[in-house]
Amino acid sequence: MPATSQRVYVGASARVPEGGRLVVDVGDTTIGIFRFQGQLYAYLNTCAHQGGPVCQGKIIPRVTEVIDPGGESRGFAFDESSLHIVCPWHGFEYDIKTGVHPGRPSARLIRVAVDETSEGVYVTF
């Protein structure tokens, strides 16, 4: 990565659809840009686990387990309010809004600044 930060145009807004992603290369750096609930998030394509290509993984809502008032399990459910990116190397999941693994806060993605104008989407890194 360059020593000084640069703001790079990555594409028109439509290239990052709601619930989707755009993965781009800027020089040797690969960055994933995601849009969820109208907000943009961007991360380096390097997983906190073994450095896998996390941004190229499956996008899927967080899985939860429903427990009834008696403490009994009522099975799995998707939590549509929380979207995950799953690293395809070994399955580490990260909340797209925070870049954090839900079970281990120290396992987190490296965030890249992202902004949007009428021209489109930019990253700064």
């Binding site: 145009y9 594409g11 290239r15 992603r21 781009v24 290369d25 800027v26 990253v123």
Partner: peptide
């Protein structure tokens, strides 16, 4: 500045 779309999304 420029970016290219990564060939495998």
């Amino acid at each position: 500045a420029s970016a290219t779309e990564h060939k495998v999304q």
